[in-house]
Simulated scan of single mutants.
Amino acid sequence: MQGSSRDAGRFMLVGPERVFYAGLLGRPKKRTLGALIVFAGMEGRLRLSVAGEPDRLVEAAVMPPYREHSIEPEHPSVVGVLVEPESVDPAALARLTATLGAMDEAALAAMLREACARLRAERPRHGLTSADFDRTVFGAPLQPRALDPRIARVLTALGERPGEALTAADCAGLVNLSVSRFLHLFKQETGIAFRACRAWKRARHLLNFANETINMAHLALDIGYPDSTHFSHSIRRFYGLQPRAIFSGSRELEIFRGAPALSA
């Protein structure tokens, strides 16, 4: 595509709890994102493939966290929203998922495209809070999850220190718990196993650098992968694309960063 990022309408707003993406999709294989995702094509429909279900053409769709799927759009660009599940009250997240899933596909696609147009016109500002994001996209803030302060502290560490190889033992020591008690409490509070959450947070951190010219091997080490092979495998599993394909399609993408999550 030609033109500047503003002309092409490509941008991404990345916060610790929300992501809004408007840009090229590429040709992803199966992907398994660690967040609730709501997506639509910028134009036309998407071919959606979900494990265990027949392929179908949709205008928009909602996918729960960690659900394997793939999408192929008729138009090369998509608009999508990611909501980190541990940041939202479980009942509120279930209501949001049900409400969006029950919407007419055309209405859901229109909602996403209109939110995209508002953000593009207003130019998303750095430091946008999750509550402000929710008002813009969903019409009202989503109720935050009431986390045990110890688990909230670990989640903050995972988000702020992705380059450190934080093990379950490290995190358990950080909050003065045994490893077994920590792992149980983490799953109980977040609904996600610690190892799966840590892998997703590390892969998610890639989004902050997607439009930069950067050495892949150095980036892999900087965001906590032991080597390029592990980096490539993890990114492909979560996003359905090789790291280089993500960076190639994001050269003209403008990235804005949201406000830090509030610590408990």
Rank of each mutant, 00 (worst) to 15 (best):
residue 1 M to D: 11
residue 51 A to C: 12
residue 132 D to T: 05
residue 15 G to K: 04
residue 115 A to L: 09
residue 208 N to H: 09
residue 115 A to V: 13
residue 8 A to D: 12
residue 196 A to C: 03
residue 2 Q to A: 15
residue 116 C to G: 03
residue 109 A to H: 05
residue 144 P to S: 08
residue 54 P to R: 07
residue 132 D to N: 01
residue 6 R to V: 12
residue 242 Q to R: 14
residue 245 A to E: 15
residue 27 R to W: 05
residue 216 M to I: 06
residue 159 G to I: 01
residue 117 A to D: 11
residue 29 K to H: 12
residue 69 H to L: 09
residue 248 S to I: 00
residue 131 A to F: 03
residue 55 D to K: 15
residue 191 G to F: 07
residue 83 V to W: 04
residue 122 E to D: 14
residue 233 H to R: 15
residue 61 A to Y: 02
residue 99 T to R: 11
residue 15 G to H: 08
residue 109 A to N: 08
residue 36 L to A: 04
residue 96 L to F: 07
residue 262 L to Y: 05
residue 113 R to W: 06
residue 142 L to Y: 03
residue 113 R to T: 04
residue 65 P to M: 03
residue 128 L to P: 00
residue 237 R to I: 04
residue 229 T to L: 15
residue 83 V to K: 00
residue 206 L to G: 11
residue 214 I to P: 06
residue 145 R to A: 07
residue 11 F to A: 05
residue 189 E to T: 09
residue 140 A to L: 13
residue 218 H to T: 05
residue 263 S to G: 07
residue 39 F to Q: 05
residue 179 V to P: 10
residue 166 L to K: 12
residue 195 R to A: 14
residue 220 A to H: 02
residue 181 R to Y: 06
residue 95 R to I: 08
residue 248 S to T: 00
residue 57 L to K: 04
residue 18 R to V: 12
residue 92 A to V: 07
residue 110 A to Y: 04
residue 185 L to P: 11
residue 99 T to G: 06
residue 251 R to V: 04
residue 68 E to P: 07
residue 214 I to L: 15
residue 65 P to W: 00
residue 179 V to C: 12
residue 229 T to C: 13
residue 246 I to Y: 09
residue 94 A to W: 12
residue 208 N to G: 11
residue 76 P to L: 08
residue 196 A to R: 09
residue 67 R to K: 14
residue 38 V to R: 01
residue 178 S to L: 03
residue 137 V to D: 00
residue 79 V to S: 00
residue 205 H to W: 01
residue 155 L to N: 06
residue 74 E to S: 01
residue 88 V to P: 00
residue 147 L to Q: 06
residue 170 D to N: 08
residue 107 A to K: 09
residue 124 P to M: 10
residue 16 P to K: 03
residue 212 E to H: 14
residue 63 M to T: 14
residue 21 Y to T: 02
residue 66 Y to W: 13
residue 115 A to H: 00
residue 150 R to E: 04
residue 180 S to E: 15
residue 37 I to A: 15
residue 4 S to I: 11
residue 70 S to E: 08
residue 197 C to N: 12
residue 110 A to D: 10
residue 185 L to H: 03
residue 28 P to H: 15
residue 17 E to Y: 01
residue 205 H to I: 03
residue 258 G to E: 02
residue 3 G to H: 12
residue 3 G to P: 08
residue 219 L to K: 13
residue 218 H to D: 14
residue 232 S to R: 14
residue 54 P to I: 13
residue 7 D to G: 10
residue 194 F to V: 01
residue 132 D to R: 09
residue 86 E to R: 10
residue 10 R to F: 10
residue 46 L to N: 02
residue 17 E to H: 02
residue 247 F to K: 02
residue 88 V to K: 00
residue 56 R to F: 06
residue 207 L to W: 04
residue 241 L to A: 10
residue 160 E to W: 02
residue 5 S to K: 10
residue 119 L to R: 10
residue 60 A to N: 13
residue 146 A to T: 07
residue 87 S to E: 01
residue 194 F to W: 12
residue 59 E to Y: 13
residue 86 E to H: 11
residue 49 S to I: 05
residue 181 R to Q: 13
